[in-house]
């Protein structure tokens, strides 16, 4: 990675970034991108959700998996933190509990890339946090 020390350096990377985005948009399947929400309330953060999030952002970019990683609040599964909600285009959202970097790696490789089901899914009848309100 080129060293970036200032926003001026970032400006120089603009064409690289733009071509990367253009490339992705071309190869995009119509269903769109995978959405991953990392639960980041006090319970999640204290259990290591930051490490999981850092891992996901870094690895998905490196492995060229088109996904958006974002944060969400506490879903009430404090006992199973860190938890992440994964929505693969065209599928229902799934929540994984007790996620560490190893589990996150499995989720990328097996669930997101190959569609295999994994252990560690928490509730069976889950609705996203916004719907519960």
């Amino acid at each position: 990675m080129t060293k970036i020390k200032s926003l001026a350096d970032l400006k120089k990377m603009k064409s690289d970034l733009q071509s990367k985005i253009a490339l992705r948009e071309k190869s995009d399947t119509p269903e769109g991108r995978t959405l991953i929400k990392v639960a980041m309330a006090t319970c999640g953060i204290a259990s290591g959700s930051k490490q999981v999030m850092d891992f996901l952002v870094e690895e998905l970019d490196k492995r060229n998996v088109d996904a958006i990683v974002t944060q969400t609040g506490c879903m009430g599964y404090c006992y199973a933190e860190p938890t992440i909600e994964v929505t693969v285009p065209g599928k229902d959202p799934v929540v994984f509990g007790y996620v560490d970097t190893k589990k996150a790696d499995d989720i990328i490789e097996k669930y997101i890339k190959n569609g295999e089901l994994l252990e560690g899914i928490i509730p069976v009848n889950y609705e996203t946090i916004e719907k519960n309100k």
């Binding site: 990675m1 060293k3 970036i4 020390k5 200032s6 926003l7 001026a8 350096d9 970032l10 400006k11 990377m13 603009k14 970034l17 733009q18 990367k20 985005i21 952002v57 870094e58 998905l60 970019d61 958006i68 990683v69 974002t70």
Partner: peptide, 25 residues
């Protein structure tokens, strides 16, 4: 940062990595 990016989303994974590195440096 948004001004420097000139239309490239600030939450683009590569942008996040670059900015994190920049702050760290």
């Amino acid at each position: 940062a948004r001004e420097a990016l000139d239309g490239i989303p600030i939450n683009e994974p590569s942008v996040i990595r670059y900015l994190k590195e920049m702050i760290r440096e």
